[in-house]
Amino acid sequence: MFESEFMRLALAAGAIVGVLAPAVGFFLVQRRQSLVGDGIGHVAFAGVAAGILLDVSPILTALVAAVLGGVAIELLRSRGGAAGDQALAIVFYTGIALGVVLVAEAGALNVDLFQYLFGSILTITRSDLVLIAVLGAVGVAMIVLLYRAFAAVIIDEEGARVAGLPIGALNVALAALAAVTIALSMRVVGILLVAALMVLPVSAAGRVAWSMRSTLVLSTGIGLACAIAGLTVSYYADLPPGGTIVLTAAGVYLVALGMSAVRGR
């Protein structure tokens, strides 16, 4: 499969997404915001539709929409008086409704759109990969630099507030990071499944890890392995890549669940 250019591009993109999605998802899961990725994904769908309608790169418009959606969820949650899941629901449904209207307006209910919804290894170009690599590097750098602060907020939010940490700014940074991850992951796993890659490897790692840091590292390892294995299987078995990657991650979760049950945790 390495002879085909599209597959090399897909594997490279898959590897980046496989590492970044669980790394960002780790912080969302620990903050009990596992579904935020899904909400942002639906706003990204509106962004894709806008890109098709305006004839500009759907990845860029999805990126802008996702960042706006992620920040909106956070601001509604923290300042708008809407409880966590309500803020998510408001943005989630507005995003998908906007997407449906824009798609109809663009007359784009076709294969192009499906590539974004379900992912497509065939459509990743060199310039897509460059964009994914640059955004991926920015994401990883943000996580490395802000890991201690994010961890401090997860461990003891009130304590972090008393210590004077800028909780609001850190939450907005995390929402923006999640949005960037979703925008760059959608070509590989698709908008409908991107959130799964942010949650399943983390849940699996949490079953077998021995510390917070090891949970994060194992999550990224599992994400990377699932992305590569899922893409390989999808290539040989002619299956949709997003679904195959996520089913692989679900399988790993079941194995981890079994391992933790055997160890009596």
Partner: peptide
């Protein structure tokens, strides 16, 4: 109580105290 579901160690909890504004 420690937030999150990850198996956070004593050292990680205490290290969170070193994150300053």
């Amino acid at each position: 109580v420690v937030g999150g579901d990850a198996p956070t160690t004593v050292r990680e909890v205490v290290a969170a105290g070193r994150v300053m504004p």
